[in-house]
Amino acid sequence: MSEKLPLTGETIIFTGSKEPEGAMALTASLGGEAIYLPLIEHPSGSHNCRISTVTAG
């Protein structure tokens, strides 16, 4: 593990009602992969969800 990229090879999953853009960017800047999985149903009633990933590079 690099001191500058301590999350290299790690996947961090964020959940909640709002995508934590800052935390996801920080995770990527530290070498990790950030994944956001929303915990609420879309207002339209759709069960489709958007999965966002951010990786360094």
Results as ranks from 00 to 15, higher is better:
9 G>H: 07
19 E>D: 09
4 K>I: 04
16 G>S: 03
53 T>N: 06
30 L>S: 04
4 K>E: 13
51 I>N: 07
11 T>H: 14
32 G>N: 01
45 G>V: 07
7 L>F: 15
24 M>D: 11
17 S>C: 00
52 S>W: 07
33 E>R: 11
24 M>R: 06
12 I>Q: 10
36 Y>R: 04
4 K>P: 01
38 P>Q: 04
47 H>Y: 14
54 V>G: 01
3 E>L: 07
43 P>I: 13
8 T>Y: 13
29 S>W: 01
28 A>F: 00
7 L>G: 09
30 L>V: 06
53 T>K: 14
31 G>R: 04
22 G>N: 13
57 G>H: 04
44 S>W: 01
45 G>S: 11
30 L>I: 08
3 E>T: 03
39 L>T: 12
7 L>D: 13
36 Y>S: 03
31 G>W: 02
33 E>Y: 00
44 S>R: 07
32 G>C: 03
31 G>F: 01
27 T>M: 08
38 P>I: 09
10 E>C: 11
19 E>Q: 15
41 E>G: 00
17 S>I: 02
42 H>C: 02
8 T>F: 12
18 K>C: 06
50 R>Y: 03
8 T>C: 10
6 P>W: 01
20 P>Q: 11
28 A>S: 05
15 T>N: 08
57 G>Y: 03
15 T>M: 10
10 E>F: 05
48 N>F: 11
50 R>F: 05
54 V>P: 00
3 E>Y: 05
11 T>A: 15
57 G>E: 08
5 L>V: 05
7 L>N: 13
30 L>W: 08
30 L>A: 11
24 M>W: 08
42 H>T: 01
4 K>S: 09
25 A>R: 14
28 A>K: 01
31 G>K: 03
22 G>A: 13
18 K>V: 15
54 V>M: 15
45 G>D: 06
26 L>F: 04
9 G>Y: 10
54 V>L: 15
18 K>I: 14
7 L>V: 07
31 G>Q: 05
18 K>S: 12
35 I>N: 00
32 G>H: 03
40 I>N: 14
1 M>E: 02
31 G>I: 03
1 M>C: 03
30 L>C: 12
3 E>G: 01
34 A>D: 00
24 M>C: 09
25 A>T: 12
24 M>F: 09
8 T>G: 04
12 I>P: 06
12 I>M: 11
20 P>E: 12
23 A>P: 01
37 L>N: 07
9 G>S: 07
5 L>K: 04
44 S>Y: 04
8 T>V: 10
43 P>L: 07
